[in-house]
Design a protein around this nucleic acid. Structure first.
Lengths: 122, 122
DNA sequence: GCAATAGGGGAAAAATTTATCCCTATCTGA
DNA sequence: TCAGATAGGGATAAATTTTTCCCCTATTGC
């Protein structure tokens, strides 16, 4: 496992939430789990751009941070289900706020993001 | 300037907001600018763990994404002031929601984050 | 002349995060 | 018997982000 060399700042609320929500797919994972997509394979189908590997890694981090729990059924073929913890549920409204702002400004955001990409790759 | 090799996903609101808010210091920059700390040196004092260089880079990105504007005064020594655009102001409540959740769960978050760090560096 | 102030930026290194590739199991259905 | 589904993990490469280091501009004050 990778060992951090630079310790994170944990001074204020923004630092703290950043520490648990940063990660390319974490917010989406929480969102889809909340929507009832609890099995790894479902999540992978919902987030096809992520590789299985990263999703597993990020799910593990979410679990370590107590936002989700993992239930492994002793059956074959294996079955696993993730659920939000009570704590995890409290972060959903915050994610919803992020998504709503993004949706409300969809066109403009797409526009400025693409413009910047083009000038980068000028 | 670094040229991306993997294009970002811009499918949903969450992708879009992620694209403009990701960056280790961006949220804090927006927050402090909103609080009235508009000059680069002030922002640097507010965020001492970031180097000048990164703050400049991230401020430039926020500017490209039209969340802030930069005003350069033709004086010596130079004076620069950043302000939120109208668009940028609309994202502040979302950031506030992030910060409030983080503050409300401060102890627990610090606890789980530190626990995970220790087991990583076990 | 030299330091301090205020704001920048290039290049390269280091840190961190993601992606790629390959392997392990077992059961079901064709 | 072979393909596919289900879940997982190690090793390594590649991508991306952040840090480090060093340099530049111009004026004011001593």
């Amino acid at each position: 496992m990778y060992e951090r060399k630079i310790l994170p700042n944990l001074n204020c609320g923004l630092d703290l939430i950043g520490e648990v929500l940063y990660g390319k797919w974490k917010i989406r994972l929480l969102w889809f789990i909340d929507q009832g997509h609890q099995r790894p394979s479902e999540l992978q189908r919902k987030i096809p751009d992520a590789t299985r590997r990263v999703l597993n890694i990020q799910l593990k981090e979410l679990e370590d941070h107590e936002l989700i729990t993992k239930k492994i059924y002793a059956v074959v073929p294996p079955k696993v289900e993730y659920s939000l913890t009570e704590f995890g549920k409290t972060v959903i409204p915050v994610i919803a706020a992020l998504g709503m702002w993004g949706d409300a400004n969809e066109e403009r955001l797409r526009d400025v993001i693409l413009r910047r990409l083009k000038s980068e790759n000028n």
